[in-house]
Each structure stands twice: as structure tokens, then as C-alpha cells.
């Protein structure tokens, strides 16, 4: 019974891990010509300023997106849980971006960001702010992409947090109410501590997915554009090396490096979780 999945995972997931590690010691050029090169890919990688910049960009994305997104999701979730009318309506609308194709989201937002005809610039102009080239100005492109990412993931994570909040037993709130705790106090002393398992889940998954940002950047930033270097994430840089520059060996080394970073990050998270996550 486990055969199909085990074999499938073996071929398409287990073998690739070994293959990537192996390939990272080769030069794999155009039309798959390969030659052994030892550690050269890794040496080159550590000296490659573009790699460091894309790693830096990736960190910037994480810092810009993850906290803001979680904060928004948490606020929305707790507001929705405060016994207001039309809860399910709000929930449905907020979830819509989560079922919308990333490529389409990127397309619409690029159109809204457009430096010459975009609606966002038109609104800025109303307030006397001159038009900005959001997606080709290296200083603005990264925050602009982050906004899109927050927009498209906040609703999804809000659902998970909401489920976590709803799972909190009523008795805690009743006890708090008897003690005369205000709603704010209830939030900080009951909701927040008890929703930490869900928060932890959201944190881990959004960290990993933000670390692997691809769709939005690929779709929104012009390929050899000015803003590319300032916005490309590790995964985009990996993709370009593997499939555009046909440097598959070097790309493999990048993949290994990315994997190591994500691993370290996850281990730190796991170790740290006992300090702040409450399992009832």
C-alpha cells in the first residue's frame, strides 16, 4: 500500500536530493555537457556578489512580509472573532486572494503599479505626489512586491489563526470576564497565549514560503531590468542560473546553500518554540 507513494517519492523527491548534491560538483553547461569541477561552484558562489545580494533581498522580504502579514492576519482574525455580524461574509472575501492564481495577481498588480498609466500613481497624483516607477526603480520595487505578497497571503493565514482562536475553550474567557478583564486584556492574556500553536504554524510556513518567493518577482520585474538585481530572491537567481544561463551545476550549488539556510532557520525555530508556544 505504501509502494506507490514510496516509489514515487523515491524517484521524484529522494533521488533529486542526491542528484542536486552531486551536480553541485559539476560544471553542467549548455545542452547538458558536464565535467567534474570539485568545489569550484561553491567557491564561486561564496565570491558571487549577486548571490549575496539575492540572499540579502530574500532576508529583506522575510523581514518586510512575515511580521506585517502575521500582524494583519492576527488582527483580522481576532476582530472577526469578536462576535460581530456577517462573520462568514468577511471570511469568504478575505480568502479570495488565496484562491487566485499568483500569475494573475502579479499581472493585476503590475498594471496597478504601472509607472505611466497605473491607478496607484493616479491616486498619488491626486495628492500632488509625482508618479513613481514602482517596479523598475530599484529602491521601490522590493517593498512594492512585498505589499503584493502580504495582500495575497494575509487572508489565508487569517483563516488558520481564526480556527486556532475558535479552538480556545470558552471557559478561559468566562473566567477572565469574571475577573473583570477588558477585551484588550482578554486578548493579551487569553487569546494571544493560547493561539501560539497556530501562530507557530503560520510563522514556520510563511517563513519557508517567503524564503522561496518566485511567482511575483518573476512576473512583475522585467528580466534584465534595473530592478532585477535589487529584487531577485535566491530562488529566482537559482531559476535564472538553471534555466536561463544554463549553468545547472552552479544552480545546484545555490540550491544546496538555500536548503542549508532553510534547515538552520527551521531548527532554530523548533528549538525556540518551547520558549513561547503553549500547548494546552
Amino acid at each position: 500500500m505504501i509502494a506507490p507513494v514510496t516509489i514515487g517519492l523515491g524517484i521524484f523527491y529522494f533521488y533529486p536530493v542526491l542528484k542536486v548534491i552531486l551536480d553541485s560538483f559539476y560544471h553542467v553547461g549548455a545542452f547538458n555537457k558536464r565535467s567534474w569541477c570539485g568545489l569550484e561552484n561553491y567557491q564561486k558562489m561564496l565570491k558571487d556578489p549577486v548571490m549575496w545580494q539575492s540572499l540579502g533581498n530574500t532576508c529583506k522580504y522575510v523581514l518586510l512580509i512575515v511580521p506585517a502579514m502575521i500582524l494583519i492576519a492576527l488582527v483580522l482574525a481576532s476582530l472577526l472573532n469578536s462576535g460581530i455580524k456577517g462573520k462568514s461574509f468577511f471570511r469568504v472575501i478575505y480568502f479570495i486572494p488565496a484562491v487566485t492564481m499568483g500569475a494573475a495577481v502579479a499581472m493585476v498588480w503590475s498594471w496597478m503599479y504601472n509607472g505611466n498609466y497605473g491607478i496607484i500613481n493616479a491616486i498619488l497624483n491626486l495628492f500632488g505626489i509625482p508618479s513613481q516607477q514602482f517596479l523598475s526603480n530599484p529602491d521601490l520595487a522590493l517593498p512594492a512586491i512585498s505589499v503584493v505578497s502580504i495582500w495575497s497571503t494575509a487572508g489565508y493565514n487569517m483563516i488558520i489563526l481564526l480556527a486556532g482562536i475558535q479552538g480556545i475553550s470558552r471557559t478561559y474567557y468566562e473566567a477572565a470576564a469574571i475577573d473583570g478583564a477588558s477585551r484588550f486584556r482578554q486578548f493579551f492574556h487569553v487569546t494571544l497565549p493560547l493561539v501560539t500553536p497556530s501562530l507557530f504554524f503560520v510563522l514556520i510556513t510563511s517563513l519557508i514560503s517567503t524564503f522561496q518567493m518566485f511567482d511575483t518577482i518573476y512576473m512583475m520585474i522585467s528580466k534584465s531590468g534595473l530592478a532585477m538585481e535589487a529584487t531577485q530572491s535566491m530562488v529566482v537567481y537559482f531559476y535564472r542560473n538553471a534555466f536561463e544561463y544554463s549553468k545547472k551545476g552552479y544552480a545546484s550549488a545555490l540550491a544546496v546553500f538555500l536548503f542549508v539556510i532553510i534547515m538552520i532557520m527551521t531548527v532554530i525555530q523548533m528549538k525556540g518554540q518551547s520558549k513561547w508556544v503553549n500547548y494546552e
Binding site: N114, G115, N116, Q133, L135, S136, N137, S222, G225, L226, A227
Partner: peptide, 8 residues
């Protein structure tokens, strides 16, 4: 600007 010409 170069940025503008990249977008359009």
C-alpha cells in the same frame, strides 16, 4: 528615465 523606459 531608464526606469520609465523599462516599464514602457
Amino acid at each position: 528615465s531608464q526606469a520609465s523606459l523599462e516599464e514602457t
